[in-house]
């Protein structure tokens, strides 16, 4: 049993959800591993402490008052249709829906912006900028690159990729494929 396997079972262990066999395996590892033992003890502490959190029961007088208030609030209230949603639930649904729309739109705009930015940079970066180690972006299509004197800037491996119609370009954080230049592959470093 590895530490990783053990740690992934700790919640089930403290919740007593493991089979006897699995529990024995996990406990065997815990008893032999100080790191996992510490994690296990801490988790047991948390569960134990939470089990000790109690809420005092209000007095009978309070409950009489509350029941009276509830009855007053429901007096002459007609039941609503089954598709009824309370105001806060409706707001919650609307808010979630709006949030999802905003996130989707933002993500789409970010992708579009990145694509446009890369597209514009493609025509601005010269081949001379293609050096070793620094992030580079191809300026033209692969055939031009192959026929140019800049070929020497590429390693043997890169040249092989160029010959296959694939140019590997190191741009941190960008992974994509240009629609305009289908043979050009952008990968992360």
């Amino acid at each position: 049993m590895t530490c990783q396997n053990t740690l992934s079972c700790l919640d089930q262990l403290v919740d007593n959800e493991l089979t006897d066999e699995k529990k024995a395996q996990v406990m065997e590892h815990i008893n032999a591993c100080d790191k996992c033992k510490k994690e296990f003890e801490e988790l047991k502490q948390i569960k134990y402490l939470l089990s000790k959190v109690k809420t005092n029961e209000p007095s009978e007088e309070y409950w009489s008052e509350v029941t009276g208030l509830i009855n007053a609030r429901t007096l002459d209230v007609e039941p609503v249709d089954s598709d009824y949603r309370s105001h806060t639930e409706q707001l919650s649904i609307k808010r979630n829906s709006l949030l999802r729309s905003i996130i989707s739109t933002a993500a789409a705009l970010a992708i579009l912006f990145t694509a446009l930015l890369l597209g514009s940079q493609q025509n601005q970066v010269s081949l001379a900028q293609i050096g070793t180690g620094s992030p580079v972006l191809a300026t033209a299509d692969v055939r031009d690159l192959l026929s140019s004197d800049n070929k020497a800037l590429f390693s043997a491996n890169d040249q092989r990729h160029l010959a296959q119609g694939m140019l590997l370009v190191g741009i941190p954080g960008v992974l994509g494929r240009f629609a305009a230049l289908p043979e050009l592959m952008i990968i992360t470093e």
Partner: peptide
Amino acid sequence: DEVVQETFVRIFKRRKE
């Protein structure tokens, strides 16, 4: 207290469900 009251008022309104 608010949670208690509101929950039971809502269940009353939604009793058809």
